[in-house]
Design a protein around this nucleic acid. Sequence first.
DNA 1: CATGAATGAGCCTTCATTCAT
DNA 2: AATGAATGAAGGCTCATTCAT
Lengths: 206, 206, 206, 206
Amino acid sequence: MNKKTSIKDKIFAVAATHFANFGFEGARMDKIAKEACVNKASIYYNIGNKEALYAKVLNKAFDEGFGSFHDVIESSLSAREKLEAYIRHIAKALERNPILPKMMMREQLSQGRHMPESFAGNIVQMLDGLTAILNQGNEEGVFDVVDTVTIHFMIFGAMMFQMTSSPIRKKKKAFSNKYQPDPGILPQSVIDQITKAVLRAVKKEK
Amino acid sequence: MNKKTSIKDKIFAVAATHFANFGFEGARMDKIAKEACVNKASIYYNIGNKEALYAKVLNKAFDEGFGSFHDVIESSLSAREKLEAYIRHIAKALERNPILPKMMMREQLSQGRHMPESFAGNIVQMLDGLTAILNQGNEEGVFDVVDTVTIHFMIFGAMMFQMTSSPIRKKKKAFSNKYQPDPGILPQSVIDQITKAVLRAVKKEK
Amino acid sequence: MNKKTSIKDKIFAVAATHFANFGFEGARMDKIAKEACVNKASIYYNIGNKEALYAKVLNKAFDEGFGSFHDVIESSLSAREKLEAYIRHIAKALERNPILPKMMMREQLSQGRHMPESFAGNIVQMLDGLTAILNQGNEEGVFDVVDTVTIHFMIFGAMMFQMTSSPIRKKKKAFSNKYQPDPGILPQSVIDQITKAVLRAVKKEK
Amino acid sequence: MNKKTSIKDKIFAVAATHFANFGFEGARMDKIAKEACVNKASIYYNIGNKEALYAKVLNKAFDEGFGSFHDVIESSLSAREKLEAYIRHIAKALERNPILPKMMMREQLSQGRHMPESFAGNIVQMLDGLTAILNQGNEEGVFDVVDTVTIHFMIFGAMMFQMTSSPIRKKKKAFSNKYQPDPGILPQSVIDQITKAVLRAVKKEK
DNA sequence: CATGAATGAGCCTTCATTCAT
DNA sequence: AATGAATGAAGGCTCATTCAT
């Protein structure tokens, strides 16, 4: 990596956390620059404006998180194993890139105001992958007919909420003893719980 | 209702949609005032500052949405029926008050920055309710041991994502044919899918 | 005048000198605000943005300068007297409003980038007035056939250059003794010279 | 010309049009560099800063335009012929170098802020030349006593305004049919009109 | 009470200039 | 000599908030 790449990457990394934590409107170019140890004008020179920076961060987060996602589908596993892999992959992607779930949630909230069309395409690809798995399971006679989007959002929703709710559950006294999160960004225990629940949810009743 | 209350209510109603759609930082006092047909200074006179307005809106949304939630628990139904009722109640609350899921998601994203302690208490109450139901089901021998938080977030996550993803799925071409949402804020078909999936997910395997 | 008018007027007055002396790009909102003893945001509240301020200043200067110009034409004087009156009127307008010639010159230089269509209309009105006078003189047999635009620009050009060149002629040593301007913004001696020259220039040769 | 000179000349040429069209404050070093196909730092290395670039452009324009102006005066023509030549020369200079009138007007507007003393000297030289012509005409008994500066500004003013008003007259609808400029930077018809008018204006009445 | 007007602080962005290679 | 990258200092504009009537 030459110096240029490194400065851009530093900006992206810092901007990602700021956009994720404060949103597009809440993020401050000043603070991003300062935290990235670059001159503010440098961001404009290297990247463009706030909107361009946001778009780059969003795409980068998604690519890094779900870029190699189609690999799961192409394997020659059983539907059940594929679904497990699918969930595991999402979990690992979110865990590896904790910015991603936040940015995706923010995009949904703002009705995709800053979401590039390509981003939507990536999500459709994921849904298609899940559909294929569910269909295969149905053909194998192990999965019931279930709605792809519902299952997808159960997985995603549960994981994202688990992740984003952790700080609050630690912070607010009301949660003091009862519902404390396990340590870690997305603990294995949570992934297991979700996997178990989803596998049951799609399973064909005898 | 006297005039003052009605002014406040109008402000709250407008502010709710703005905070939900644009976030705390994205919402503009100017626009809220104009859309509520009140003078900007009137908001400050009647309510306080932006933060106070946000807090009021947040609490109001939650109270209206989940204020009477404990009623479900006190009934004398079976665990399965109670869980169905629990899901149905959440669905109805979210549907009746579409601002609520958005504000809750935003709160999670900002790590509860504006969330009052009472709000956290309400959520704990809900979780306690769900725990009671799940315990009852376990005692009845129909539910397996499952994690309350995971199940809660599956329900909530799926519903919220369904709701907030609708506009994007309509808007972005990538979703053109395949994953179009059913009409309505939170269609019955979606509620049914979620209910079915959750019931299976907690069900004890024989 | 109520207070509101007075603040706007103060802004306009200061802005006029700044736009005239520094041009649109050279003028600074900061300095205008400070010199007008108003908060910078106040300009935006009262008027809009820089472009709007400029347009207002430009129109105001023209209206104040040439607003009542058509009166000259409607009189029942001889062509010669009318032309004298025309020149006198322009001279008085420019003298009364020294901002005007500068702004008009700047507009020409920037190819009317900020010039509203109405402004152009006003100039056409002036030219029409001059054309009428010249035609009348031709019919009376005292004026030769001359180009309206040329005569107009001779009058205007001479006056404007006299006015705007004064500071330089005073400042630069090269002009030390010879070509010093008479005192005053647009001295009567200059007006007389121009009037004499123009009257000769249009006069029919016998 | 070696390479360095050619680079400088390219920069000067582009900078001239930019300074003329946008003014000192409106001109952008970035755009000048890009349009001149040189690196921005190259301008600073070769010439200095913006102010130095402007000064160079101004002087160059004047030298190219009026450098060999004194030749007119030294000829042995009649006063009338000399005046015609004087006007023709100014016209040709302006036509050959359309940047010049714009820059001179801008200098006047900014009260010679960037005008070097030598520049003022050149203008005085021109005025002296005109004075000599007018004096000669007076001695010959063909010219009346007239003010040099007034005549100079009539000539200059009329030409410059004709030139700089052309784009506006073409652009603004208000001028649609009536006052359209003849084609060309400074059409011969305009020069003829001005020459005719000026000759009359100075002519001795019998 | 209600409201039009005012404002200080801050935000995004640009620009002339310099640095480092 | 030449250039891509970097930057300090503004500049235009906005926004939450307060003032004054």
